[in-house]
Nucleic acid binder design. Sequence first.
RNA 1: GCGGGCGUGGUGGAACCGGUAGACACGCCGGCCUUAGGAGCCGGUGGCCUUCGGGCCUUGGGGGUUCGAGUCCCUCCGCCCGCACCA
Length: 813
Amino acid sequence: MAEPRYDPTAIEPRWQELWARERTWEVGDDVDPARKSYVLEMLPYPSGEPHIGHLKTYSVGDAVAHFHRRTGRTVLHPMGYDAFGLPAENHAIKTGVAPRASTDASIAAFQREFRSWGISIDWSREFGTHEPRYYRWTQWLFLQLLSRGLAYRREAAVKWCPNDATVLANEQVVDGRCERCGAVVEARQLEQWFLRITDYADRLVADLDTIEWPEHVKTMQRNWIGRSEGAEVVFRCEALGVDYPVFTTRPDTLFGATFFVMAPEHPDVERLAAGTPHEADVREYVNRALTESSEDRGATDRPKSGVPLGRTVVNPVNGEAIPMYVADYVLMEYGTGAIMAVPAHDERDFAFAEAFGLPIRRVVDGGGELPDTADGPLVDSHPDFDGLGNREAIGAIVDWLDREGKGHASVNYRLRDWLISRQRYWGCPIPVVHCEACGIVPVPEADLPVVLPEVEDYAPKGRSPLAAAEDWVAVACPSCGGDARRETDTMDTFVDSSWYFLRYCDARDDEAAWDPAIVAAWMGVDQYIGGVEHAILHLMYARFFTKAFADMGLLDVQEPFKRLFTQGMITRDGAKMSKSRGNVISPATYVERYGADTARCYVLFIGPPDQDADWSDEGAEGVHRFLARLWRLGAESEPGEEGAELPDDLGEADLALARKAHWAIDKVTADMSGRFAFNTAISAVMELVNDCYRLRERATAETLRFATATAASLVFPFAPHLASEVYDRLTGRRVWEEPWPAADPALLESDTFELVCQVNGKVRDRVRAPASATDEDLRALARERPNVRAHVDGHEVVREIVVPGKLVNLVVR
RNA sequence: GCGGGCGUGGUGGAACCGGUAGACACGCCGGCCUUAGGAGCCGGUGGCCUUCGGGCCUUGGGGGUUCGAGUCCCUCCGCCCGCACCA
């Protein structure tokens, strides 16, 4: 007869079918907010099939969800799809397959695989963001933002990707290139839709202190928002009679300003130079600067360039006329597009002054060489301020400016408003109508959703492909009834994913985006899990939406995600998996061969989940071997009457095994509570299984059954099918309905321990000592050890350190 | 340049408060079982030396604090990530 073998293909579908049939993981709306847990993994973008990164994300999330359930919480663990987006549309342009068709096919593949992984999802709440029943509410939320002035249309210099033929958000431009396709972005002057995220800049920075996120993610958001405190100071150009405000973080150095610089994009540059001998030079310089890529221009090491404007402005603190320049090191996007230059205390201004032979005047004595950015007392400034520490001088000078009407305290941000319109097809239509007579008119709520029409040609032509759908575009103005045209731009897909976690709470609501009472019970997300690549974009937009909706009275939380975990990447041979490298591991193939439990356990066992890890086939086999050993323990063990209780009378081997089981309970519980130490949790279960094998000849069947059932119970969050199978066989019970096991303190302690005997900090011997021994007993015990005596004899013991339960250290001279 | 992280056996990693460095796993070596095994079970495995008692060395390098340092402090080297002319 063939030896029985661990066969996941026989076990896994059986449990998956049971969970599906009984809707085991579905939860209702009547949740006790004190005992709820909302566990959420970032929703997948459905393209092709899931990859190994998805497996890791959902293995982590499912382990957390299971642990929370079994420790007494009602867990919301939903799933959906971020279904709009450029890849499906580009695929359509190449192959002719409609984006909806390819996206739905991919969603079907994701559903199939998630079920085959046995992830505990409440499928009743599932949706794709491309379904009208979802994007109807995306449009409704847009209209709420619009009615409060948080959505607006404005002409601005925007980033244009020539390859994708669409504008991009600032956040989607990396090193001057399109984050998606890598094409160098161009600047264009276009009228676009924006969301006023800058209104929330302060709160987005301040509230980072209220959430448990990895410090580096918070740092990235702080850097991105780039809050700096300073002052706005007005410099007047008498020749034109125009005031130019500048932003500075160093009002204490105002007396050291020796020139003034404007960005080439500044709208007044040409007007200023007109009629001066520099007119032609300025025009040429500006034209050159505008054609340069932002990446070349941004290089910090390039020499400073610029030309004089032939005009002066007056420094408000001392009435001095200083020369004006145009130079590309000043950026139009930041501050006011013009700066006061203080070469003595700013490295960039210093470099420019050196290159152009401009005066350099020290006004702060920081004690260093020029340019000196250190703190120190003010010098050569003004009798009222000289001698004052520069930090105090900031306040004093700003107060003075304010009184004189020449400036005021000010805060500046690097953050820009969020550009959300895209000239592409496969996205959520922006629900407004353009009317000659009435201007921009919101589509009435009753007419939502504005359904995305079917089109034939998805190719971008610099305007949205929707513009070609004449029947759809032509519409009666909702306000005056006259001829009007629909907005043909669609929304950035990040809008869709900025509120999906709210919709999950009340996913089938046809009357509203959500019922505030239901959302109040579930929100915020207790544990959010995903890749660090979303540290700025998605995570900041979602925070912005949450705050905006809270202000509208739709939510009672200020932050969407209380705790965030960012998982590391799984690489292969040290490199990112990619089709072009040919090093891709397909989860589907792997699950087919070894089972979902092995695949899930391995991605958790491979290392600390927040770190990158390299995939190894041998390592995965080791995990498979472990699961097979546990399965065999279950298969060879006699099923118990009911449950698996520890007998009262324990022999030596029984006691050792019982202790190990309780040690494992304690270890796994600690590793899952607050930390994400799945790798060490799994290794603790491995130790328990190893001890079951070591002691199985000597321990009683009852103890062995208890230890095996405990191992199954503990491994359930990582390998749910196998755990259910083994636990069911041994106890006749459903492991997911069992409370998480509790370690018995009496079995965690032992009456003896191994005393480490050190001489001068070096380990010289070990001996078993009674737990009840006094410090004196332990000292005596250690001094008796032969190898300790060999190192002590002939020396004077000058000190004895005793760490109870651990060690004795004899210090000799 | 600024900010953050990391550096431990042949490999992935463990060591949570300063207290036995190397748990667990891979790989490798040996044994058992077997017609056979790439299955399974048991054992060994940081390096050097050894009179087989044990000794010395070892957590990127150097220094320090301490009875005791992978862990704390200083310094240097290397790697990774984010930001980068932001006034």
